[in-house]
Write a protein that binds this DNA or RNA. Structure first.
Lengths: 123, 123
DNA sequence: GGGACTGTGTAGTAAACACTACACATCAAG
DNA sequence: CTTGATGTGTAGTGTTTACTACACAGTCCC
């Protein structure tokens, strides 16, 4: 694998913001977004360029909310896993460890199918 | 549940070691275990009494190996989730986030059944 | 009663994490 | 031409994580 994903989170974030800026220019300047999220503009700037590593989960969640992105995807790009998902695993470590390692090999549609069947109360 | 302990990891670890010590006293002194795991005895002592927070994943894995414990369980007691499981989730965040949050409500036997069916190649 | 063990107390450290504060250069608009 | 906004550079801070180093007291053995 090439080192293509060095700034995966950074790039995704900047692209997402500039995309929103096309629609609503004034509301999605770096400074405005930083202000709504509650961080320093210079910090967001560095994050968007990958100068700084991705921020903490809280900031990522607020960014996702403002940008209409999926928090879990953004967290993943930041190399993190949502704290609530971790808690779910920790509650039954063996069960979920086994299941996840099994599903690792499976294609998307298989995982999706499992999820759907579970949701549809077939268990 | 009895007094759900603040020092769940600590107590579990100490109990596990002292249990092994009944069988093979010399091999499971605090110092011997610390030596095999590659940490300072005083550090292990503090960990076993909950004076210090649980160690990193590497140390926990080596402790589990020496004590014949399940690494995922030990990690869970330490408030952590195995790095490899996190990587599995990060590879397909939406899929696994949805599945896990769905399975959270389900009883053990249901999760187990899903895992078994997946393993048995019904997908 | 000196050695060789136990476990423990005190102190400190090095790196990573998650940010803030403020000054600066640039550019568009009035 | 200066005002007000944009993004960015430099510097620094408090906290957490993950440990090490070494000295110490008690116990068992002869």
């Amino acid at each position: 694998m090439a080192a293509s994903n060095e700034h995966a989170f950074a790039d995704y974030l900047r692209d997402s913001r500039t995309a929103r800026a096309k629609a609503d220019a004034a509301a999605f300047t770096l400074r405005q977004l930083a202000r709504r999220v509650g961080i320093e503009p210079s910090y967001l700037s560095k994050i968007e360029r990958g100068t700084q590593p991705p921020p903490g989960e809280g900031v990522i969640r607020r960014l996702a909310a403002e940008l209409g992105e999926d928090p879990d995807v953004l967290l993943a790009l930041a190399g993190k896993v949502s704290a609530d998902l971790q808690a779910i695993i920790r509650a039954r470590p063996q069960l979920f460890a086994q299941l996840l390692r099994e599903l690792k090999k499976m294609p998307d549609h298989a995982v999706l199918r499992v999820a759907r069947e579970v949701r549809d109360g077939k268990w």
